[in-house]
Computed example of a mutant assay.
Amino acid sequence: MFTLLTLGLALWILAHVFKRVAPERRAAMGDKGKGIVAVLLFISLGLMIWGYRGADFIPVWSPPSFMVHINNLLMLVAVFVFGMSATTGRLRGKMRHPQLTAVKIWAVAHLLVNGDLAAIILFGGMLIWAVLEVILINRAEPVWDRPEPGEAKKDVVLVIITLVAYGVMTGLHAWLGVWPFPG
């Protein structure tokens, strides 16, 4: 299962960085290339999930129990930051890479509470990918055209959506057998 996990992670990274490391080649693929990349990403997600869920538990370190609280707070922040990419409120343009920043926060949060080898491979790999992706984007497009801020009420909508999305995510974790709150 570690092979599937690693293969899925490698495919995820390659599908994402292909556009940055070979832009002419990716452009030559046209719209058909978008479909190919989407299929590869879908397959990579399946491989990562299947590999992670089926991997043997090999402990590397034992996280202290209070890390669960830090994880939960960081996850709430990650959902909010991810949502900043779609906001049209005052927060629009405050951060260049909100989705990738959210992935970094998500990965660190999960590394704080999961000390097994599969978690370190998955979440550590996603953290490395997000850092690499930001570097590649910034190198390819060093100048960022910062969008103008919008209305503050849109940020209130973002907070509400964040809370609802966080509730759905914790519900999914519970449904999958991983209770995200200390008991």
Rank of each mutant, 00 (worst) to 15 (best):
V68H: 10
M126I: 15
W129Y: 14
W144M: 12
V77G: 05
M95A: 15
N114S: 14
L40A: 12
R20L: 13
L47A: 00
M29R: 06
R92N: 06
G8Y: 00
L158R: 01
L111F: 05
L176N: 13
L163P: 03
G51H: 01
L5T: 13
V131D: 09
I160R: 00
V81E: 00
A107W: 03
G125V: 08
L45H: 00
L100D: 03
V39Q: 00
V21Q: 05
F123C: 00
A27F: 10
P64H: 10
M75N: 11
V156D: 07
G150W: 13
G115P: 02
V143L: 13
I13Q: 12
F42G: 15
I49F: 02
A130S: 09
P182L: 12
A86L: 05
A10L: 11
G54D: 12
F66T: 15
R146L: 11
P98C: 00
E151H: 08
V164P: 04
L91P: 08
L47K: 00
G177P: 04
W129I: 10
A140Y: 12
T87D: 01
V103L: 14
R139T: 12
V178D: 08
T162A: 01
L172T: 06
W129H: 09
H16W: 09
P147D: 00
T88R: 09
K94I: 06
A22R: 07
A130H: 15
P182A: 10
L132A: 13
I36G: 08
I43T: 01
E151W: 04
T170I: 10
G183V: 11
F66N: 15
L91G: 10
A152I: 13
G150P: 14
V168R: 04
V108A: 08
R92T: 05
